[in-house]
């Protein structure tokens, strides 16, 4: 554990709390892509299967359980509790174009032909693109509530902080995970456009609006 990874994880936790807070206070999940949230459940469940057979640390265990539970809770909020505020007609990204290629990549690039290893790789690849339906929705509507942009910024910060974490681990442990690093770079890259608008508009007190 190093400070980059720790603050990355804290940022990830924060993003989830921000999202739940947004849904509760506005009593609405408007502007949130259900598809992206479903993908996150798939990411967490396939990656954290090792909860069943390996122990890393209490920290690791608690975080994994929290990520699975909170992501399922968000689906409940969107599909049951605040269902009328969820508008599937603007959430139109074709998820099969993400899941299919990620499954193929996981079969090619993994650390061993065991079901759990392939699913681990799959979850890493899928996480890197899981935000796309959300970003696509943002692009379509052209604007977002400020709180939603804070959610996305915290989520983007999480993977951005994992990059210095990997650099740190490379020098301190001689360790590098090519699958995680490649997918992580892609994932962070997807946020660059968003970050640009976030820093130049939202943090200057303006509304998040994309140029027409």
């Amino acid at each position: 554990m190093n400070i980059f990874r720790f603050f990355g994880d804290i940022s990830h936790l924060a993003s989830i709390f921000i999202l739940i807070h947004k849904i509760h206070t506005s009593r609405s999940c408007r502007g949130i892509s259900f598809k992206t949230q479903v993908l996150y459940v798939a990411v967490f469940v396939t990656r954290y299967l090792d909860l069943l057979y390996s122990w890393v640390s209490l920290y690791n265990f608690v975080m994994k359980v929290f990520f699975i539970a909170s992501s399922c809770y968000i689906l409940y909020l969107m599909k049951v509790r605040f269902r009328p505020t969820n508008d599937p007609s603007i959430d139109t990204f074709r998820v099969e174009y993400l899941v299919g290629p990620c499954a193929v990549l996981a079969l090619i690039f993994n650390y061993g032909y065991a079901v759990t290893e392939v699913l681990w790789s799959f979850s890493i690849f899928l996480e890197s693109v899981a935000i796309l339906p959300q970003l696509f929705m943002l692009q379509r509507t052209g604007e977002a509530e400020t709180i939603t942009t804070h959610y996305l910024a915290a989520l983007g910060a999480y993977r951005t902080l994992y990059i210095p974490n990997w650099i740190y681990r490379y020098f301190s442990e001689g360790y590098v995970d090519p699958i995680a690093v490649t997918a992580g770079l892609v994932q962070t890259g997807l946020y660059l456009d968003f970050f640009y608008v976030y820093f130049t508009k939202v943090l200057q007190g303006q509304k998040f609006e994309l140029p027409a």
Binding site: V56, W120, Y175, V176
Partner: peptide, 10 residues
């Protein structure tokens, strides 16, 4: 687990 995989990360 491979020594070179981030299985200890979240």
């Amino acid at each position: 687990d491979s020594d070179f995989s981030a299985h200890d990360e979240l």
